[in-house]
């Protein structure tokens, strides 16, 4: 797995550095764009975690173009290891951008005495960040990135439309305040991500190149 991680990190540095930089800026800006009434820029808030968690899919599309998949299947790596590396990388990228976004939010919300909202926000970002890769990665591993990409656009469309309709008024201000039940959201997102991981391992073992 060490070799695969090294390869993917090299690819992130080479292909995704501007996207990563943009996400860092957005993560920082998300805090400063949050208004006192709880509204803010939904895009700045969700884009970094979303991009971080779908980083493996971005890399898989480059791999498909260079026919890495076939070559990789000849290397002394189990198919499970290949899947594990991609999920691990996606989760780490998600965690990094989640931490940055939350740090930025904390800097703004804590002085206003609104620290309680941070928990709600984590729940929402976990769902938004982990749901797309959980749905797309099994499709990528079984049928390739192109088919998964179609689904991705549909999912993003639904999420952005949902965010635009209810996000500004409800997501940041009211709907996130779900009381103790909010903590179920990240748990649910993590469970979905884990189930997707197991499914991807099974599907990738059936793949022919």
């Amino acid at each position: 797995m060490k070799g695969l991680l090294k390869k993917d990190l090299l690819m992130i540095v080479k292909y995704c550095r501007f996207l990563v930089l943009m996400c860092l800026v957005f993560a920082v800006m998300s805090g400063f764009s949050t208004e006192e009434d709880g509204s803010g820029n939904f895009f700045f808030l969700v884009y970094p975690v979303l991009l971080g968690s779908i980083m493996p899919i971005t890399l898989m599309s480059y791999d498909e173009r260079s026919h890495w998949d076939l070559y990789c299947s000849t290397l002394p790596l189990s198919r499970k290891t290949v899947v594990n590396e991609r999920y691990l990388l996606g989760f780490l990228c998600f965690l990094v951008f989640l931490a940055l976004t939350m740090l930025s939010q904390a800097v703004v919300l804590l002085p206003q005495g609104r620290g309680g909202e941070l928990g709600d926000l984590v729940g929402m970002l976990c769902l938004i960040g982990l749901l797309p890769p959980a749905v797309m990665l099994p499709i990528c591993f079984r049928w390739g990135v192109e088919k998964a990409r179609i689904l991705y656009y549909v999912l993003i469309g639904v999420m952005v439309a949902g965010g635009l309709i209810v996000g500004q008024e409800l997501m940041l201000a009211g709907a996130m305040r779900m009381g103790s039940a909010t903590w179920l959201i990240p748990l649910l997102a993590l469970l979905l991500f884990a189930a997707s991981w197991v499914l991807s391992v099974k599907l990738y073992q059936k793949r022919e190149f």
């Binding site: 260079s66 998949d69 290397l75």
Partner: peptide, 23 residues
């Protein structure tokens, strides 16, 4: 393979580093 399959962006030196983590 007919199409070697290596990532387009890596150099021979970097490829050596990747393979050291594989084999």
């Amino acid at each position: 393979l007919d199409d070697p399959g290596y990532p387009e962006c890596v150099t021979a030196r970097q490829l050596g580093g990747i393979m050291a983590g594989v084999f």
